[in-house]
């Protein structure tokens, strides 16, 4: 059961997006998220939506997986859209008691739905096409300037690497402990909410004890392998920007400029940021 869960799901492949440098992907993703909230009319929203679909096809990851990630948030989308639908200002198109739908309400509802879905899809592309190690490497490199403010960027990246490494190990261990407790008659499936929470304690206690034991061992192993922080440390794989990165940068710049032009030239449909 627990083995099914994988954080930062990565699907190896040979697409253009897989070949891109993680740093460029992270930068472009951030810009993308910002621009998705910059869209002010349907044309610019459509540009963003279409470009998201374009990126999805480029990733060559099965569409099923994208459906899955959207399915996970569909409730949030429906809920926020519905809420926005009834909170619009202006002339009501339809009214029933206190509930009224206005043109502005419909606009906000559509924008919110498209924005959230686009956000989730584009973030999924990053995790689907980037291996966890590349991702942490990219984050470490991008945050490097923060060392100026005495933020321990290398340590944070190392923690992420180790966390990613140990997630499957600890999940496996949780499975084992659960089986062991079940064999002793523990019951995790029935009873009310409080009872179920209480039933988790006999799992968490041994899990924590073993996690600490593992941590001591790991620290010893790392010290034995001459780990002494980020100073003077080199990497086997050096991140390098390729032609794909510059192509992606070029294409997305064009899209972003298009969005800005649309916002400026065409009438504004929606004023609120969200």
């Amino acid at each position: 059961m627990l083995k099914e869960i994988t954080l930062g799901q990565y699907f190896p492949g040979k697409s253009v997006l897989h070949k891109m440098d993680p740093r460029m992907k992270i930068i472009l993703l951030t810009c993308y998220i910002v621009f998705i909230f910059f869209t002010k009319n349907y044309i610019s929203l459509a540009i963003m939506a279409v470009s998201v679909l374009g990126v999805l096809t480029l990733s060559k990851v099965s569409p099923k997986l994208y459906f899955k990630s959207v399915k996970a948030i569909i409730f949030i989308v429906i809920f926020t859209s519905a809420l926005n639908l009834f909170y619009g200002t202006g002339e009501p198109i339809w009214q029933w008691g206190v509930l009224k739908i206005t043109q502005a309400g419909i606009n906000t509802a559509v924008f919110v739905a498209v924005r959230i879905i686009a956000l989730v899809l584009i973030s999924s592309v990053l995790t689907y096409t980037t291996s966890p190690t590349d991702l942490t490497d990219g984050i470490e490199k991008l945050l490097k300037p923060l060392t100026f403010f005495h933020i321990q960027v290398h340590e944070i990246a190392m923690m992420m690497t180790i966390a990613l490494r140990f997630i499957p190990t600890l999940l496996e261990e949780t499975d084992k402990i659960m089986s062991a407790q079940k064999a002793r008659g523990a019951n995790f499936e029935s009873g009310n909410f409080m009872n179920r929470i209480k039933a988790l304690i006999p799992i968490l206690v041994p899990l924590f004890v073993s996690a600490f034991r593992r941590a001591f061992d790991l620290a010893m192993a790392m010290e034995s392998r001459c780990y002494h922080g980020g100073d003077g440390r080199t990497r086997m794989k050096v991140l390098k920007y390729s032609k794909y990165d510059f192509m992606a940068l070029g294409v997305l710049t064009v899209i972003f400029v298009g969005v800005i032009v649309c916002n400026v030239m065409l009438p504004v449909t929606i004023r609120t940021g969200m």
């Binding site: 690497t161 490494r165 790991l218 192993a221 001459c226 002494h228």
Partner: peptide, 27 residues
């Protein structure tokens, strides 16, 4: 289980040499 640091075999093996500050090619 407790002494492997990275989530890919070759990157774990590279951990020691990386700490020693060796050139990427040599690693």
């Amino acid at each position: 289980d407790n002494q492997l640091v990275a989530s890919i075999v070759e990157e774990d093996v590279a951990f020691g040499p990386e700490n020693l500050g060796i050139e990427p090619k040599e690693i």
